[in-house]
């Protein structure tokens, strides 16, 4: 349990904790905020909101499809619903409800999923979610965000109130290392370069941004300058920063805790193919199901560690520049 071995001596904070703390703060001044959950309110932390605002919390039981429809109805009468459960049940089980009831109607419902990716760990592939970016970004009107740390999550939730249309935010079960300052000013649709470098650019989201930063530091000692971009908003994609990175470095790598099919890597490739094609290496969970295991062992097994990212970047660099 925990990401300790990849984040030694670092401050780790839960995205789900900050999500709900921020909601509780915002709800003081905004009586329209309501929260829904599907029997996972202790895991998603929305139970804390329920304690503060019992009248504005609705546990829908184990029925994700009804939760999405109910959230749509609440939005239609002027409420600002946040609906939370595990990523696979939110994006997977209720996909068509999200498509019709939320996206076609362009309703400002915020889906804040916890337990995304592989690091759900021991519960196994039934509960892992490595398909949600693909499922959500294909929907018109949807915005898709994977914050990389707790401070970015706070920014996302604050800014979400002024976002028009539905939003999908993927969080994690694990507490993640904190990189951004507490007062970070998040902006939808903007990638951020967190580390400069002109030999290769690593575009990542979620936990993989921190791991890519670690990889970039390893590569620096070998004289390879690896730029690292936090692409927390996957839809709409910041095409400008992607194309700029391709033009300036000529080599792109993408890293995500998601299948390499349909996720961040695919979105980056779609953009580059049409404007400035350069070699791209996609890192992710590949096209297969994972197994039960601790988060760290799974990340090892599926090659999503700082070391593996550095190795892949080094290989890509040597293939083309070596």
């Amino acid at each position: 349990m925990g990401l300790g071995e990849f984040c030694q001596d670092r401050k780790l904070v839960g995205l789900r904790d900050v999500y709900v703390e921020t909601l509780i703060e915002l709800a003081k001044d905004n009586a329209d905020i309501v929260v829904l959950d599907a029997d996972l309110s202790s895991s998603t932390r929305t139970g804390r909101f329920a304690k503060e605002y019992p009248d504005r919390f609705f546990n829908m039981g184990i029925s994700e499809q009804d939760m999405i429809g109910t959230a749509a109805g609440l939005a239609l009468v002027g409420k600002i619903p946040f609906a939370s459960t595990f990523a696979i049940f939110e994006a997977g089980r209720a996909w068509e409800q999200i498509r019709l009831s939320l996206c076609l109607n362009r309703l400002p419902v915020k889906l804040v999923a916890s337990h995304g990716g592989l690091t759900v760990g021991e519960d196994g592939p039934t509960h892992h979610c490595t398909e949600d970016i693909a499922l959500m970004r294909v929907l018109p009107n949807m915005t898709v965000v994977l914050p990389m740390d707790a401070n970015e999550m706070r920014g996302v939730i604050r800014k979400s109130l002024s976002l028009d249309g539905p939003l999908y935010v993927r969080g994690s079960r694990e507490n993640l290392p904190v990189v951004n300052p507490p007062d970070m000013d998040f902006e939808f649709g903007k990638g951020r370069t967190l580390r400069q470098g002109n030999d290769i650019a690593i575009i990542a989201c979620g936990l993989m941004v921190d791991f890519s930063l670690q990889a970039s530091k390893m590569l620096e000692t070998e004289g390879i300058g690896a730029r690292v971009i936090n692409m927390s908003t996957i839809k709409p994609l910041d095409k400008e920063i992607v194309i700029g990175a391709a033009r300036e470095t000529g080599l792109i790598m993408t890293v995500e805790e998601h299948s390499i099919t349909g996720g961040l890597g695919s979105a980056v490739c779609e953009t580059l193919c049409e404007s400035s094609p350069v070699p791209v290496k996609r890192m992710g969970t590949m096209d297969r199901f994972a197994v039960s295991g601790s988060p760290c062992r799974l990340l090892d097994l599926y090659g999503l560690t700082p070391k593996a990212i550095a190795e892949n970047a080094r290989a890509l660099y040597r293939d083309y520049r070596g």
Binding site: D66, A71, G73, L74, L76, V77, K79, P81
Partner: peptide
């Protein structure tokens, strides 16, 4: 479900 959400809201 949508009608329920409206009624609730």
């Amino acid at each position: 479900s949508i009608a329920c959400g409206m009624a609730l809201g």
